[in-house]
Simulated assay, not measured.
Amino acid sequence: MLRVDVAYAFIYKEDEHKILMVNNKGGTWSFPGGAVEQGETLKQAVIRETKEETGLTIEVEEVAAVNEAIFKEKGHHALFITFKAKIVDGEISIQDKDEISEIVWIDIPKANELMPYHPNGVESLLKSSSPYIFQA
């Protein structure tokens, strides 16, 4: 079974109570992010993937969630690490039209519908916090 690490950016627009989400071409919704490449840290991956998907430059903060899944049909054992993040530069635009069909600010109830694998809802990520430490 192949191990796949995925890093996501949880970007919350506090004044509107909305979360930035991407609609992947397969029809699934997620936070911006993607697979960690060989030799890349989790933080480097989430910064790169967010830029590649949305055109945004982000500042990465603490870990908000860690999810795990086994996809037997693909032969993947996936670890999903979600970081809180803030936009520091850029304008939202789809960078890879083959991968992303839509980038939208979504309210929390709708985000909960689209991402049911957070059992206490995505709003629980607002309260969740764990330090991320890269031990070089």
Rank of each mutant, 00 (worst) to 15 (best):
Q44G: 15
Q38P: 09
V60P: 02
L20N: 04
T41V: 08
I58W: 04
D15Y: 09
E16D: 11
G27S: 08
D15W: 10
T50C: 10
E16I: 09
S30D: 13
I47P: 00
K25Y: 05
H17A: 14
L20H: 03
E14Q: 13
A35N: 14
F10G: 01
G55Y: 07
I11Y: 03
I11G: 00
A35I: 15
L42R: 04
E14R: 14
F31M: 12
N24Q: 12
E62G: 09
G33V: 02
E61G: 12
T54Q: 03
I19L: 14
G34V: 08
V46F: 01
T50I: 08
L42Y: 13
E14V: 12
K18Q: 15
K43Y: 04
E59A: 11
E37Q: 14
G39L: 13
E37G: 10
V46M: 05
R48S: 09
I58T: 02
E62P: 00
E53Y: 03
D15S: 15
N24D: 03
L56P: 00
G33C: 07
Y12Q: 04
T54S: 09
I19H: 00
N24A: 03
E49R: 13
A45D: 06
L42A: 04
L56D: 03
Q38W: 12
I11F: 04
K13G: 00
N23H: 14
I47Q: 08
I19S: 01
S30Q: 11
V36S: 05
G27C: 09
E40D: 10
